[in-house]
Design a protein around this nucleic acid. Structure first.
Lengths: 241, 241
DNA sequence: GAAGTGCTTTTTGTATGCGAAAAGCTGTAT
DNA sequence: ATACAGCTTTTCGCATACAAAAAGCACTTC
């Protein structure tokens, strides 16, 4: 939006170094556009298969085509849209096969992530996990789907973070977001079990038991995968939460 | 089976369906630029840390800044350059930590890939693997480093392909290329052992022994990782064989 | 009436232009 | 001589302009 240059003055050397938190960078417009489009895709405003016309998006977002183009191309490499050579961008249509493949890869990555997390977790890490676990269980009580999804994502992201492998964490982030996109419409039924498994996982990490953490996470991921397959049969029209 | 979703117009009855090879698309310029820049980075023409000026690259490649920009941004998401907000692109400088993390992720992904490959390999798949194995051993004899690196990449890519998991294969492709970038300078010494392990891997896949294939690949990947660490400190490792 | 062909419209791909931010340099004052 | 301030240069980020390709439509023809 309007990023008015509100007198951001470069601090002189006289300022305390600790407080000199790198002032927010001009925030590249393409990033904002990327976020906006991703949000529109994830919440189904832009339907799978839909043709995305650069000019339309540009006008809708109030920017020129250039940032839109750049955002679309990054969306492609991240698997959200298909960019056909001289034809433009289409919202990616997830196939059953692809969903399963993503879930399989996720399972492998998350299992490894859990193992590493158990090896590296500090006391404060465990504290954070317990906090997230609690937040998830609270969301479970209120049956707020949106909060549940976020709590789930936060916990998994935290585990990935604690694994101390940035490359791994980044990959998990990408895969998880796409899995969530496919999975959200049917996320409700498994929530209870899912959080019980999470609790088990946190316990294993707290004990520093890598093998057990990996095993629990593997079971958790495969369970999710199974649930996806079981649920896939009934074509749900609109699930309201 | 998942048929083509929508509107793929059936070819005229008069045309042979098999021969209707989709004519090559105009080949977007950004793709050519991406490939060119990646090549320049991998072969060290563009050194790590170097500042890449759009205008210079554009002139050098004989195109305008636009395709260069788009290529640079994709290079960023793939981890080859760092795009600092208002400052431009810099060739990514791999850290020791990052290399190890990549090797770790690669190990996990490739292990899973090998397992799947053992489960899905057909007779012709095995034939292909044996051919690639033979090509590698020949390259080993001629001691042609470039050919060796390519043969190695081809074999691993083939295994990923045979796993029948496209998502996995794509990820392995990304990770492997970066690993190779870090690893190539020291690729020579381990070639012999490496190809012995490859032979073992192919055998396991041919037998359809998923556990063994996974175990062999895991050992192979961890060995590579170890070699990387040993080599990094230019100790007098004398002969590794 | 149906099929094929050529034209028009739409949309992408590439190039260029312009403003702004950051880095570098020079001159001056202490 | 050094350090700071202000200016200049460089380079990016975004907008716009133009050309080429593809899709859609209407017209013609058999």
């Amino acid at each position: 939006m309007t990023s008015s240059p509100s007198g951001r003055r470069a601090p002189r050397g006289s300022l305390s170094a600790a407080a000199t938190r790198r002032v927010e960078r001009p925030a590249p417009l393409r990033q904002a556009v990327y976020d906006a489009l991703l949000e529109l895709i994830v919440n189904r405003t832009l339907a799978p298969g839909q043709h995305l016309v650069e000019a339309e998006l540009a006008e809708y977002l109030g920017v020129s085509r250039q940032p839109v183009r750049e955002a679309l191309q990054r969306l492609q490499t991240d698997g959200w849209v298909d960019l056909r050579p001289a034809q433009g961008a289409f919202v990616h249509t997830p196939t059953e096969e692809e969903a399963d493949q993503l879930l399989a890869v996720r399972s492998v990555l998350e299992t490894y992530s859990a193992k590493l997390a158990a090896e590296h977790a500090t006391a404060s890490d465990v504290k954070l996990l317990r906090k997230l676990q609690k937040a998830g269980e609270e969301a479970l009580v209120t049956a707020n789907v949106e909060r549940l999804v976020k709590a789930n994502a936060d916990l998994h992201a935290a585990v990935a973070e604690i694994s101390r492998n940035k490359v791994l964490a980044e990959m998990i982030g990408l895969v998880d977001r796409r899995v969530r996109w496919y999975y959200t419409p049917i996320a409700r039924p498994r929530s209870r079990d899912s959080w019980n498994e999470h609790a088990e996982l946190v316990a294993a990490i707290a004990e520093g038991d890598a093998d057990r953490a990996g095993e629990v996470m593997h079971r958790h991921a495969e369970q999710t995968r199974q649930t996806y397959h079981d649920r896939k049969a009934p074509e749900s029209s609109t699930d309201s939460d």
